[in-house]
């Protein structure tokens, strides 16, 4: 399964090459041209087929980010353990006792934790800070560690992809669903003809501040943009009658507003109407939280109407996340139909 390859590829922000190679290899038959820009974005063009309408857009940008959150080596201790800092938003509580891979050589390591025998109840109440943790790669001296790793090496989580359930929600688990799930959706959308030039951009460095999307959008100067994401999903029981942000299996999640963008209301209406016309389930992202590449894209040059379609992903920004393949299929279906509707232009 291509999604498995995507999820298992290592692509901490700033080091997206493995993901880029994988994507490019998969989509080459479906695109007319591609290029890799100065920041590492993979920009693919599938030229317009058919006659664009008078009101229709000429250039539509789709974006999904290749990078994932991870760690970076900031120091090597005299005992051979490695100090590190976060790359992107990481809660220290998800790190202890996790397996990681360090650098291009994928040196295996463990983020050690003190065993329960040696902790007091008070210890167990406290969150261990990032700077009190270390990665243990099984060597006992600084010089031995330096033969395997160096400062600035990126660190990814070591997580295997697995299909958990082939019926029901068709759940799968793996690392980096934020946003390999979006990359997967984009590769599927590239397999269809549209009446406009479709720029599918696999962006770099989203997790550290929408950096790749910013320069890619400037270069492309699109008329419209759709961003594909894996988004927060917290469909656990609540003690109050309050919505989860999104729920697994309830369809693509549409953003009306987050910290980075107010989605263009015309695009949101178009997505909702398309879903309702075709009976595709959809949900709104029910929190004004987080940001996506749309935050950078819509502010490009003289402004780009933008919207976000996301796949609900449980446990994101942690070593393992979970999505429903039903949601993935519905996201592809909704986006494809909405893009065809867009060929006629945005209603006022």
């Amino acid at each position: 399964m291509f999604l498995q390859e995507l999820a298992e590829a290592r692509g901490v922000a700033g080091h997206e090459q493995a993901v880029r190679d994988l994507v490019l290899n998969a989509i080459k038959p479906w695109i007319d041209t591609h290029r890799v820009d100065a920041l590492g974005n993979l920009i693919c063009l599938r030229r317009a087929r058919g006659q664009p309408t008078e009101q229709g857009p000429r250039k539509v940008m789709l974006a999904a980010h290749m990078d994932e959150v991870g760690l970076m080596i900031t120091g090597i201790n005299s005992d051979g353990t490695l100090r590190f800092g976060p790359v992107g938003g990481i809660d220290p509580r998800v790190l202890l006792s996790k397996q990681v891979l360090v650098g291009d050589d994928a040196v295996p390591g463990v983020i050690g934790a003190r065993p329960i025998h040696l902790t007091t109840p008070a210890d167990r109440e406290r969150v261990v800070e990032l700077d009190k943790m270390a990665i243990d790669i099984g060597v006992t001296s600084k010089s031995a560690a330096e033969k395997k790793v160096k400062l600035g090496d990126y660190v990814s989580f070591r997580t295997t992809f697995e299909v958990l359930d082939t019926e029901g929600l068709r759940t799968v688990k793996g690392k980096a669903m934020d946003d390999r799930i979006g990359c997967y959706v984009l590769t599927e959308l590239l397999k269809t003809d549209y009446a406009f030039d479709l720029y599918a951009v696999f962006t770099a460095q989203e997790e550290v501040g929408l950096r790749g999307a910013k320069v890619a959008a400037y270069a492309i100067n699109p008329d419209l943009a759709l961003v594909f994401e894996g988004t927060v999903c917290d469909d656990i029981p609540k003690d109050k009658d309050i919505s989860p942000v999104t729920e697994l299996g309830k369809g693509p999640a549409l953003t009306f507003m987050d910290r980075s963008v107010i989605a263009d209301p015309r695009l949101v209406r178009l997505l909702v109407r398309t879903a309702e016309r075709l009976g595709i389930p959809y949900q709104f992202k029910r929190a004004i939280a987080g940001g996506t590449d749309a935050g950078a894209i819509h502010l490009t040059r003289e402004g780009v109407p933008s919207a976000v379609i996301a796949v609900a992903s449980r446990y994101i920004h942690a070593p393992v996340s979970m999505v429903s393949l039903n949601d993935v299929d519905h996201t592809i279906q909704l986006a494809r139909e909405a893009l065809h509707t867009l060929e006629g232009g945005l209603e006022a």
Binding site: I242, M257, I262, R286, A287, I288
Partner: peptide, 17 residues
């Protein structure tokens, strides 16, 4: 204010714009 949830009794939960 943006509506983020409508509860079973019809009350709206909101977030700030």
């Amino acid at each position: 204010l943006a509506v983020t949830h409508v509860d079973k009794k019809g009350f709206l939960r909101v977030a700030s714009v």
